[in-house]
Computed example of a mutant assay.
Amino acid sequence: MKLIVGNKNYSSWSLRGWLAAKQSGLHFEELTVQIFGEDWDERKNAMGEIQPSHGKVPILWDDDAVVWDSLAIMEYLADKVGRERFWPKDDAARGMARAMVAEMHSSFASLRRELPMNVRKRIELDDVSDATRHDIVRILTLWAEARARFGEGGPFLFGTFGAADIFFAPVISRFITYGIAVPGFAQAYMQAVWEHDWMQQWIAASEDEEWVIERIENVSQ
Rank of each mutant, 00 (worst) to 15 (best):
W61H: 14
A65K: 15
A65P: 02
A65H: 14
A72C: 10
I73L: 05
I73S: 08
E75P: 00
E75F: 00
E75L: 10
Y76F: 15
K80P: 07
R83G: 15
R83Y: 04
E84A: 13
R85W: 00
F86K: 12
F86L: 07
W87N: 07
P88H: 11
K89C: 00
K89Y: 00
D90V: 04
D90R: 07
A93K: 09
G95R: 10
A97D: 07
R98S: 10
A99I: 01
A99Q: 15
M100K: 06
V101K: 04
V101G: 05
A102P: 05
M104D: 05
M104I: 08
H105M: 09
S110W: 08
S110I: 06
L111C: 11
L111V: 05
R113V: 05
L115K: 10
L115A: 07
L115I: 08
P116C: 12
N118E: 12
V119S: 05
R122G: 00
R122A: 04
D126G: 14
D127H: 13
A131T: 12
D135M: 06
R138F: 01
I139M: 12
L140Q: 15
T141N: 14
T141Q: 13
W143E: 03
A146V: 07
A148R: 15
E152V: 05
G153S: 14
P155Y: 02
F158E: 05
G162F: 09
G162R: 09
A164F: 03
D165L: 02
D165T: 09
A169L: 11
P170T: 05
V171Q: 08
I172E: 10
S173T: 09
R174T: 12
R174I: 08
R174W: 03
I176R: 15
Y178M: 08
Y178L: 02
G179K: 13
I180K: 05
I180N: 09
V182L: 03
P183V: 12
P183M: 03
M190Q: 13
M190W: 01
M190L: 03
A192S: 14
A192H: 07
E195F: 01
D197S: 14
D197M: 07
Q200G: 10
Q201C: 03
Q201R: 14
W202M: 12
A205H: 07
A205L: 05
A205T: 12
S206I: 03
